[in-house]
Design a protein around this nucleic acid. Structure first.
Lengths: 78, 78
DNA sequence: CGTGTAAGGAATTCTGACACG
DNA sequence: CGTGTAAGGAATTCTGACACG
């Protein structure tokens, strides 16, 4: 489930988010997709769950910089 | 694991097969990928396992038409 | 039969920017 | 701040065909 295999188009379908939002959350360090040799983002099912969680929190009024703190504790490192 | 989320490029990496082989196995009805709106094949992790199994059998000397019989019994229907 | 390849087109994704607020 | 969009380019995938054997 942690294998980075999905391109952003499918993540869009699975999460209901727009590509813009997904890229923005990555920019804000809330998700960490891999990259294909050509530069395309690659997400795992865990990333998809993470994105759903993020968007849920956003709707609750949280800001990206607030969520980043919470997420920092989830990351394996750094 | 049965969600069709990977494009052929990743399946190529995960299975070690060439795109040509993957498409050929689909043509011979050994795997049944979904399709994106634009027509791109979408595979599941189950499909990846199936492909590995297929190639393994091929190396053992089996032909696609022989494997199709075995696979028919695995399919949910048809 | 199973797989390689060159060919041309179409769909997908990428980045940086302007916009609004 | 979070997200929409038009812009141009690059990477990805598709199909049908010719090739070999």
């Amino acid at each position: 489930m942690s294998q980075k295999v999905m391109s952003i188009g499918i993540v869009r379908e699975l999460t209901g988010l727009t590509e813009r939002q997904i890229r923005y959350y990555e920019d804000k360090q809330l998700v960490f997709p891999g990259r294909s040799p050509g530069g395309a983002r690659k997400f795992s099912f865990e990333d998809v769950e993470q994105l759903k969680e993020i968007h849920s929190k956003m709707k609750d009024g949280f800001h990206t910089f607030e969520l980043r703190k919470t997420i920092a504790g989830q990351q394996t490192r750094h």
